[in-house]
Structures are given as C-alpha cells and as structure tokens.
Write a protein that binds this DNA or RNA. Structure first.
Lengths: 130, 130
DNA sequence: ATAAGTAATCGGAATGATTACTAATATAAG
DNA sequence: CTTATATTAGTAATCATTCCGATTACTTAT
C-alpha cells in the first residue's frame, strides 16, 4: 500500500518546463543556466523536476548524444540526429516505425516496449564549413 | 604533416580484446575486473586501449545502456536491446537497414554517416520472473 | 649489444554528469 | 491560521571517463 504523492505546482517546475519548450534538446546544465537567471534554483531541483516531468509524460529524455541526456517537449515519437561536429541534437523528419517493435519482438523472444533510432552525421551548417 | 603512430602489441591490449570477445557487451569496469586478475592493469589503460581498438575497427562501442558504454567484438552492423530489468544488453537478430541512412539524409539536408537502433524491453529471462 | 626515440603503462588526480542528503521553506487542504 | 508534507537550496557523494607526469618497454639503427 504505497501512499499517493500529490504533486504541488511550483514556479521552479514551470520554469524548467518553459525552458524545455522554448529551447531545443537542452541538457540539464543548459536548463539550469537559463532558469537560474529568472529564479533561485539549484542543480538538484533541475534534475528532480526533469525526472518528475518525464514520469508525468510531459517531456521526454533524448539519448542521441551519448555524453549527456537532453530533454524535449513531448510530441509524437520521432528520431534524432547527433551532429559529430557541433554536438547539437536535431529532430529527424521520420515517423515512428510502429511495426519495428512488433517484428523485432516476434522472432527474438524479447518483449519490446519501444525503440529509438539515433543518426550520426553532419548538420547542414556544419556541412557548409567543411 | 602528421606523424604516423606505429602501434605496438602489448599484453594488456590483447587481454582487453580477449575479454571483450569472450564476454558479452562488457563495460570498461567489467573489463578491468576481468583483466586485472590476469595482469597488472590500470583503469586508464583499459580506456585507452578501448579507444584504440575502436579506432582500429576491431571492436565497437555500444550505446544501448545510457548510463555506460559497453563494448563488443566487431561483427556486421546490428542492433541492440537494453533490458529494463536486469540492465544487460543483447544483440537483436535484425540486419542493418542500409537504406535508412540514404532515405533519411535525402529529405532532411543532413549528411548521415550511420545510425543505431536501441530497443528497450524485457529479455526472455526477466519475462519469466515477471 | 647498446642507445635513442617514442608508444604504452601505472597510479592518481581531475572532470563532468548525475544522485543523495539535510535542514529550511512553501504549498494545499482543513 | 495550522498542519502535513512536497519541494527547495546547497552541498557532499558517486560514478564513468579523461588527463597527466613519471616510468617502463618496444623497435630500430648504430
């Protein structure tokens, strides 16, 4: 019998969410830097609120850059590209392959919940410089 | 004019490679624990040799578990599943979608080098327990 | 065989992301 | 307003990974 946690609305949580919605694939550090200018804010608070927002399904954690988790507002599932040069993460204009989970699960014996596809390459800006 | 680095064969490097080939998707820490029983070995040496072996194309780094890089002998490109419960990483029996890179690059303006697909779910053993 | 040049090693310190902890604060409900 | 407890700030701790300086050990040429 676990007690139900009743979430409270706090300015810090709303500011974190706002930063994510305005920004693009921000890291916890970047979010902290934006939000700490507008309100008193500690690092732990950023991380805790990111976990809560993910749990509530309001944002998603993006793992395209292996060195750092990035966060994005929740839209329909999609894929990402990580630019080798500038390190930024971009959305890829492909829709989610629903069939992939079913197909991959069937033959293999794994119970598949979801998948992510991460592309590696160069973004348009970095191609120009090269 | 960059000087060519001439690699030397060392017992540490061979032991790292051997551990990877015998094991399955080991982390740097796990490799260290195996190899340090057989020879004098420091952490930095494990990491340096992992980088070298990846560079030489003899092993690959697998990013399916976001919290830690794992290493695998180099086979034909394939995909991985990260079990939510036990945390292990498994090979998925699917062959690499060569077309995906071409298709995704064409429309988007990105120059795509490669992609990875990571599945999340439960491995057969963990399904039984649940 | 010896010396020179340099790749590789050890061991530990440094870094960077993330998590954990504690006392103080703030919110929702009665 | 009071109470219960979710949330916070601030800091310490953890964990993976990288970096660095001194030493060791291959390799090649003498």
């Amino acid at each position: 019998m676990k007690r139900e946690i009743v979430r409270r609305s706090t300015s810090q949580r709303e500011l974190v969410l706002e930063a994510i919605c305005k920004g693009n694939h921000l890291s916890a550090r970047e979010i902290f830097e934006i939000v700490s200018k507008k309100a008193r804010m500690s690092f732990g608070t950023v991380y805790r609120n990111l976990q809560i927002l993910v749990e509530e399904g309001r944002i998603i954690a993006v793992e395209a850059d292996p060195s750092v988790l990035r966060y994005d507002r929740r839209l329909s599932s999609h894929y990402h590209l990580h630019c080798k040069k500038c390190g930024k993460v971009f959305d890829m204009p492909l829709s989610y392959y629903n069939d992939l989970d079913k197909n991959a699960g069937g033959a293999s014996g794994f119970l598949i919940e979801s998948h992510t596809i991460s592309f590696k390459g160069l973004c348009p800006d970095c191609q120009k410089e090269a």
